[in-house]
Nucleic acid binder design. Structure first.
Lengths: 197, 197
DNA sequence: TTTGGAGGTAAATAATATTTACTCATTTGA
DNA sequence: TCAAATGAGTAAATATTATTTACCTCCAAA
């Protein structure tokens, strides 16, 4: 095995880092390959050495973020018993992630869904993985009698996912601040107990 | 006043119609001005006569759709009493709209949110109008004792909006069929009563 | 009758993404 | 130990696409 096999080349790292930096302030579409290359301090050609195209680079950044997210989710759920408690925690973790990782939030909420390639990307594969975790909690809850058994699990998942995402949208778009703890508490309560008096 | 002041020129109509047709099958980003011009049977320059740029045309198409939607929503709510009943209806109407207007669904769920201009567009203004209608129903429900008064209205709105949108996403992306009546029934029940047994 | 504006066009230009052909340095295996 | 191979990186050409410009034509109204 060669010495450098496990090392990521510095140029590649700089490109990824530049993408993250630029997405902090600007829209993916508004970024040019030239912008990215200049910010990274590399030439435009090098970007194409490591990534198929601009979008592939975006998906890569998202994938890295999501990997961290999944590791964290896994940790966060350790030692928690009961579907309700797990759900509470996973909602909190999701909101916390969106809240403290603006670039991540913006990529996934605003930037990727408009291309077909995304749905074939590795990043999307991780999203599906998260979905399965959530779905398993829901099924556990139904089987154990904590959740209603007359609602299809997929609908429940959509409600949870959709509510979280929509609640974090304004923050992602307009930079509005939200308190993670408060948002998590209210959203969990709302989903568990409904809005009817 | 001149005769033609109220008439929309045929070229403009053809451009809008071409955009709608193309969005039926393809992504906004993948459409070129040339594609649109050829499909419309006009020259590329004409598109810029009527629209600031490609995105402005997209926003216009969305705006037209949304205008129809708001008219329909207004009609649908006529004669309905009580916040719960209104909510039930507005959820049904929203799902029905996404279900039967694929292009509309795809534009609003997938295509527009990734640009700053959208949030200054007339189309977004209409979305805010819809939001206010929804918010008014929620406030009516709280004031009248139909809904809980310990949840902030904005959170409730986000939950409703988010749940509906996420439930319609797969249909928009993968063309998966969904029964409007069934989806509306389940989502309404879920939001009103929660998922806890 | 003429003039000004609206609908429309063709072709030039500008902005960007992507490809190609090439260094240079390091590693490897014979 | 040394040619061949490989990987990082570059510079410049090319291709694609959005956008602008300058123009034409027709017709309603003054």
């Amino acid at each position: 095995m060669k010495k450098t096999d496990l090392l990521i080349p510095p140029g590649k790292l700089k490109i990824i880092e530049a993408m993250r930096t630029l997405l902090e302030e600007r829209t993916f579409e508004s970024l040019t390959i030239s912008d990215i290359a200049v910010t990274a301090g590399v030439t435009e050609g090098l970007i194409y050495k490591y990534f198929k195209d601009k979008r592939d680079l975006l998906h890569h950044v998202l994938k890295e973020h999501y990997e961290h997210f999944l590791v964290q989710i896994d940790r966060d759920l350790q030692g928690i018993d009961g579907a309700v408690n797990k759900l509470r925690k996973i909602i909190w973790s999701s909101i916390e992630r969106y809240a403290n990782h603006r670039v991540f939030a913006r990529i996934i909420l605003l930037e990727v869904r408009n291309s077909e390639e995304y749905f074939n990307s590795e990043a999307y594969g991780l999203v599906k993985q998260f979905n399965r975790i959530l779905l398993d909690i829901i099924k556990e809850g139904i089987a154990g009698g904590e959740f209603r058994d007359d609602l299809p699990p997929a609908y429940i998942r959509n409600a949870i996912f959709g509510t979280i995402e929509h609640s974090c949208l304004n923050r992602a778009i307009f930079n509005e601040p939200v308190s993670t703890n408060e948002a998590a508490r209210i959203i969990t309560d709302l989903l568990l107990n409904g809005i009817k008096r």
